[in-house]
Computed example of a mutant assay.
Amino acid sequence: MTDQKIVVLGAGYAGLSTATRAGRSGQVTLIAPEERFLHRIRQHETAAGHAEHRPALTNLIRGRGVQHVRARATGLDLTARTVHLDSGQAVPYDTLVYALGSRTAWRGVTGAAEHAYPVERAAELGERLRTAEPTSTVAVVGGGATGIELATELAEAHPRLRIRIISTGLVGSWFSAKGRAHVLRVLDRLGVEVHEQTTVTGVDPDGLSTGHGRVPADLVVWAAAMEPHPLAAEAGLTVTAGGRAVVDDHLRSVSHPEVYVVGDAAEVTVPGTGTLRMGCATAQPMGTYVGRLLAGRTDQPFAFRYLVQCVSLGRRDGLLQLIHGDDSMRPIIFTGLVGRTAKAAIIGSVISALR
């Protein structure tokens, strides 16, 4: 490994976990434009005006054989095994770990990209909310975990704002009946107006157009869907129809085995578990596995089983849902302060686990 040129693209949960493990016994080049780690599962807190928790990448890679190149990858030459950067530099590799993750998907909705705040702009949204009129209306589009956490956090932090959550399906539909019922109770307690089975067809400065008519809003937050970064498909890696790279049981690209793909960018199917969903819960274990693989600490196929799902519901409530290893729901939940404390503990453990 000491003679191998190992390049990791992306400094998210998967990329950093890979780099710090592989960097224990070899030299790794980590390419990412950020100076600080973006803790994506805390973006709802940032949007609500709470202090950001973004440790410096230099602290996270300290003591490892990792060189951080602050640049953005603009292209991959899979034949020449070279990464092209926006700085004009070309970085060669023997082994590439592709961990560019995912980004907000607008799904072709007219005006969404122009008039809605994606979660990537959480800090900007927080500043806008700080100066918003007290009676403003905020529409959160998306009934998944991100949308639920945003709606509850904003409602609690800004009680005079009118918060609406708009979901194409049912809000929290994947939870058990008890889990979804608790989410709806909290939304009701916080005064969040719920619009379910409502498809957004357009966004403009005055709100949303939907299949059920107009939904007025002074601000729109978009948390409806995520999509993988397109660079993998553009470079020629084999990808699914949704753009995620197809990998083998060691997380190597099926078309280019010198390229490992981890995190949201990878379409990973584990026997007995199924195809893994996007998220920190799956990205970090993938990165840890590939880092250990490159360091010679394992040669076994990647294995993964789910344990829990959890969401924070403001500062004083949360939901911890026990699940089976294949991500299906069990009937057991923990709510209130217990659920919130469990979610906080999980969030806190993520940073230490990156190393």
Score class of each variant (00 low, 15 high):
residue 323 I to V: 15
residue 300 Q to M: 12
residue 331 P to M: 10
residue 279 G to Q: 12
residue 24 R to M: 05
residue 62 R to P: 02
residue 6 I to W: 05
residue 12 G to R: 08
residue 349 S to W: 01
residue 83 V to R: 01
residue 282 T to H: 07
residue 215 V to G: 11
residue 251 L to F: 02
residue 70 R to E: 15
residue 236 G to F: 03
residue 277 R to I: 15
residue 325 G to Q: 07
residue 349 S to Q: 05
residue 257 P to G: 05
residue 268 V to P: 00
residue 333 I to H: 06
residue 103 R to C: 11
residue 209 S to K: 00
residue 273 T to F: 04
residue 257 P to S: 09
residue 148 I to P: 01
residue 15 G to V: 12
residue 22 A to I: 09
residue 153 E to Y: 04
residue 251 L to K: 00
residue 250 H to P: 07
residue 116 A to E: 13
residue 186 V to L: 13
residue 326 D to M: 03
residue 219 L to Y: 02
residue 7 V to M: 04
residue 93 Y to K: 03
residue 334 F to M: 08
residue 170 L to N: 00
residue 343 K to P: 08
residue 154 L to Y: 00
residue 330 R to E: 14
residue 262 V to E: 01
residue 250 H to L: 14
residue 47 A to M: 02
residue 338 V to P: 07
residue 50 H to Y: 14
residue 344 A to K: 06
residue 278 M to G: 02
residue 220 V to P: 09
residue 282 T to F: 06
residue 180 R to T: 13
residue 118 P to A: 11
residue 140 V to N: 09
residue 342 A to C: 14
residue 297 R to E: 11
residue 94 D to F: 09
residue 222 W to A: 02
residue 185 R to M: 09
residue 181 A to I: 04
residue 27 Q to Y: 02
residue 52 E to G: 14
residue 231 L to F: 05
residue 231 L to Y: 04
residue 298 T to S: 04
residue 115 H to Q: 08
residue 283 A to I: 09
residue 129 L to E: 07
residue 12 G to A: 13
residue 21 R to I: 13
residue 131 T to H: 04
residue 159 P to Y: 14
residue 11 A to L: 14
residue 121 R to F: 05
residue 194 V to C: 02
residue 187 L to K: 07
residue 76 L to K: 00
residue 79 T to W: 06
residue 285 P to H: 06
residue 161 L to D: 15
residue 132 A to S: 08
residue 73 A to K: 01
residue 92 P to Q: 01
residue 221 V to L: 02
residue 331 P to V: 12
residue 6 I to F: 03
